[in-house]
Design a protein around this nucleic acid. Sequence first.
DNA 1: TCCTGCCGTTAGTCGTAACTAATAACGCTC
DNA 2: GAGCGTTATTAGTTACGACTAACGGCAGGA
Lengths: 228, 228
Amino acid sequence: MTIPRIPASRSRENYLKALLQLGTGERVSVTVLARHLRVSAPSVTNMLARLAEERLVALGARGAASLTPDGERAALHVLRRHRLLETFLVRVLALDWSDVHEDAEELEHHVSDRVLDALDRFMGHPTDDPHGHPIPDRRGRIERRTLAPLATLPPGSRARVREVRGGDDRARMARWKRNGLVPGAPVRMVEANAEAGVYTLEIAGRKLVSGRDGLEGILIDRRPRGRA
Amino acid sequence: MTIPRIPASRSRENYLKALLQLGTGERVSVTVLARHLRVSAPSVTNMLARLAEERLVALGARGAASLTPDGERAALHVLRRHRLLETFLVRVLALDWSDVHEDAEELEHHVSDRVLDALDRFMGHPTDDPHGHPIPDRRGRIERRTLAPLATLPPGSRARVREVRGGDDRARMARWKRNGLVPGAPVRMVEANAEAGVYTLEIAGRKLVSGRDGLEGILIDRRPRGRA
DNA sequence: TCCTGCCGTTAGTCGTAACTAATAACGCTC
DNA sequence: GAGCGTTATTAGTTACGACTAACGGCAGGA
């Protein structure tokens, strides 16, 4: 008879999480999903069909997919697990900020609610992960923020780094850390040359010249605190 | 071409661990393994063949299997992960002694060396898990102990509980904990009736009457400390 | 010695989730 | 509107690890 196993997860959960992260309310195409998950397009079509059957995903024309409320709930739970785990690995186990992503990526599929709650309790219910991202609560609610890319900070203005995206790129994370570009760091835009894509910043007193690419993923609050 | 994946684990690791725990140097039969892993006999034959091909298991006549040195090393690494995780769950996260087994059982297959070492460091390199079992070191070496079943303690003698086996039976573990039968607890055999299988004990000052079954798995040092 | 059981193996299937190759459905350009 | 390129789907395979059903070999009892 073959036991159908637990509703199964791992792969499923990764699809849901990807849909959550890629779909800003919008539908996500098969190709985009495939690239993100490093999987072939047919695999995506296939899995989306299964997830649609389980009412976790809604399919639109030309394979465009979005999460149903159920799917979004599930995805937020995965995200919560991921972020709590990253927080634990950094805050408690003192692992490197730029290294923890893949460990969390693995463990997020295997931590029980019991253990997760215990971790949460142990850390005093943190609200942000080490990269500044908000951690969804137990009910799957997440703080909605409107942040701006650091590159949009007008010259002379000050702000604080709020979130640092792209945790899967270790080298990038390590570079940011070296330069002091971590959540909470005070920054001042000294000079911005949007055409050339060159920006001069002061981070916690230290000067940094960076290209636009090098700043992509660093987010600040939309309304900068204070003026120069 | 289909990437052969990582040497893969989960199931493999469970077979290796089972061989380590069941085979006291001896070869283990297909049937025993099947029962222990709650899997059909053909599944066992099948997997053993694969493990033998990878030189992790040596096969004898009539399907009897034992670990090769490589296999034993691998198994001890899994055991180390399991025991360190249990220790973490109990000592740090304050989860219940009798509950943690299954969580550790799941996580042991997914924790990286990096995280494991960090856990080990964080806890100050514990040598025993919450059930009193020795934790293999990083190189896979484990303390060899010669322990005796609590039931063999002569009437009037005192000893300390050293290990408590059978972590997979929650109810049993919970009962022992309620009765104070935890590693380190001082016990005195008040009266032992081997024929009837009834034993009267004093545990940390409290009296307990138990059948032989109820004590199976509780181990003390072979040479009791002190006399009555 | 032969029969009966137990134990293990062989053969064939299933579910999951990936893959490649080939095809179909758009949509944009000329 | 024909043709081309992109995007999605269908078809068929593969690997893993489980399963059931059926078969073979050895041991002990009659």
